[in-house]
Each structure stands twice: as C-alpha cells, then as structure tokens.
C-alpha cells in the first residue's frame, strides 16, 4: 500500500494539472459546467463519507447545501468576505448535521432515509416561507463573488480557479479524514457495528461525526454554489436535489473515494452530451436503470472490472510467453 502512495500522488498531481489547463481556450459555459461539477463533487464526496464509508444514509444533502448557500449569501450580502462567511456556513452545517445524526442512532436504512428526506422537505418549507431571512420564493440575488485581498474572483475563469483551489483543499482534507483513525472507524461501523463496539469504538460518537462531517462538506458545496450562480432560491435545495446527489454517489461507486467525482461528472455532463435528442431524459433514465441492474457498483465498478481484466489478460500473456 505504502509503495503505491507516491504513484497516487503523481496521478493526483497530473489530474490537478489537467484541471488547471482544461478551461483555457474554452467558453465561459464550459467553465461554468466545470465549476458546478466541482461543487457537486464536494457535496457528493461528503455524502459518500456518511453513506459509503459509515453506511448511514442521508437524503438531506441538498438541505445542507442550502444551509451553506443561504448562510454564505446572507452574510456576504451584508458585506462579510467570503472567507469569513463560508466557514460560518460550514460550521452551521456541522452542528445541524450532528443533530440530524441523532435519529441515525435509533433507526437504520430506509427509515433513516425517510427521516432525512422529511428533514429536507421541512428545510425547503422554511426557506420558502421565511421571507424576512431567505427572501422566500423570490430567493436572494446579486450575491457577490469572493474577493481575497486584491484578487477578485469576479471573472468566470478566476472563479473557476478559486473553486478548484477550494475543492482541492476540501478533497485533501477528506483524504486525510478517510485515512485517519476516524476514517477507519467509519468503515468498521459500516462493516460490523457489533464488532466495532467490541473493539472499543464509541459507535454513537462515530455515527454522529460521520453525519456532521458529511453535512459540513454539503455546506461547503453550498458556499460555492451561492457565488457561482449568484442567485439562490428554495427549489435549488429541494428533495429532488438530494436525490440527485445520492444518484451521483451510487452511480459513481458507493464507498469509493473518487466515485462521487465520476458520478457528478456523469450527472452534470451527460445531459450536455445527449442534448439535441428529444428523448435525452428518457435515455438518461434507461442508462441509470441498466447500470444499476447490471453493475450495482457503478461506474468505478465498471472501470475496475475493466482494468482487472486487462491486468489478468496481460498476466496470462506473460505466463504464456514464459515457457
């Protein structure tokens, strides 16, 4: 494992380099898509921590994006800098996530799914009805883009690099969490709770933490969404969006570190690829059904199977060549 880590770092560096040069020469629409892909990747990676690693489902990720987005929007509209506003949003999500984790101590699986789904709908109602705070169904507009010292992320390309930097840091942090004792505890919780407990893990604390950290990442995604779209309204954080994030996680590959990035790419970019055909949502739905039925491990699963086959045939070729 340790021998592979330098290679992993190299691949990460190459990927980062690709992402750095990618937008050059492209129109702002493409850059906008990349930003929204990065944003959804963060949200989906957060959910993947709760769901894929710790095995606790949440259908409320969009509401955390909402908490993050509204907090950032309201504070920056009041003149706060993004760098001060976003952490407040993320922290708030951490706390609310912690609270939403409590039901997870009592119920599992589908029941937990419904509790979190109900929570998301309640959030939507509050965001729509409390005009004084959230602007109600008119939403909040003209949200400023971040400005750090003399550097302004006002332009499309500048904002992309800002998003990329934030995402890279967030992913790095997540990478650290997954590899930390906490990360191992999350996995132990998913695999076998009783055993985890017998090994001396405080499963209550770990469950709550899994929720809180996953939610905080949702909040960060929201903190990016607010200045990206520069307009937020309740429908952007309704249950449908949570299901979309869940789709990204599962389609990408549940419990796989990079799966959510891939799933987010599919959800954000596939409609773009299929545009022009009148039936693109139908094709999209059929594709997802087929993928889930034939390959429940998702896109990463397909990729892995493919690579494994490749390695196997290469190994076979090598042994054949030997004698």
């Amino acid at each position: 494992m340790s021998s592979r880590r330098p290679l992993a770092l190299i691949v990460a560096a190459v990927l980062l380099a690709v992402l750095l040069i990618l937008p050059v020469g492209h129109g702002s629409y493409f850059i906008y898509l990349l930003c929204s892909w990065l944003m959804f990747t963060i949200a989906a990676m957060g959910l993947n921590l709760t769901l894929g690693y710790a095995g606790r489902i949440s259908l409320a990720q969009a509401s955390f994006m909402g908490v993050g987005a509204y907090t950032t929007a309201i504070l920056t509209l009041h003149g706060w800098p993004w760098l001060a506003a976003a952490p407040v949003g993320v922290l708030l999500c951490f706390v609310v996530g912690l609270l939403l984790g409590f039901p997870a101590l009592r119920v599992r699986g589908h029941f937990l799914a419904f509790v979190t789904l109900a929570f998301n709908t309640l959030f939507f109602l509050v965001a729509r009805n409390e005009d004084w705070l959230t602007g109600g169904s008119y939403g909040l507009s003209d949200i400023p883009r971040p400005r750090i010292g003399p550097i302004s992320a006002d332009g499309q390309l500048a904002f992309y690099y800002f998003t990329l930097a934030v995402s890279a840091l967030a992913i790095l942090a997540l990478w650290g969490i997954v590899r930390s004792p906490w990360g191992r505890a999350f996995k132990a919780l998913r695999e076998n709770e009783v055993r985890a407990e017998s090994l001396g893990l405080d499963t209550r604390r770990i469950t709550l933490l899994a929720f809180a950290i996953g939610s905080a990442f949702g909040g960060l995604a929201g903190a990016i969404e607010a200045p990206l779209v520069q307009y937020i309204e309740p429908n952007s954080f309704a249950v449908g969006e949570s299901l979309k994030v869940l789709l990204m996680v599962v389609v990408g590959g549940l419990g796989d570190f990079w799966g959510p990035a891939l799933g987010a790419a599919m959800v954000v970019l596939l409609p773009e690829a299929l545009r022009g055909t009148r039936y693109y949502l139908i094709v999209y739905a059929l594709f997802v059904i087929a993928l889930m039925v034939l390959k429940p491990t998702g896109l990463m699963g397909i990729g892995k199977t493919f690579l494994a086959r490749l390695a196997k045939s290469r190994a076979a070729a090598a042994t054949e060549a030997k004698p």
Binding site: M1, R4, L15, F257, W258, L262, M300, K304, L307
Partner: peptide
C-alpha cells in the same frame, strides 16, 4: 488507490 485514480 492507483486503480481508482486511473479510472477516475
């Protein structure tokens, strides 16, 4: 990790 990276 390597495979994941490559596929991604």
């Amino acid at each position: 990790s390597r495979r994941n990276f490559l596929t991604a």
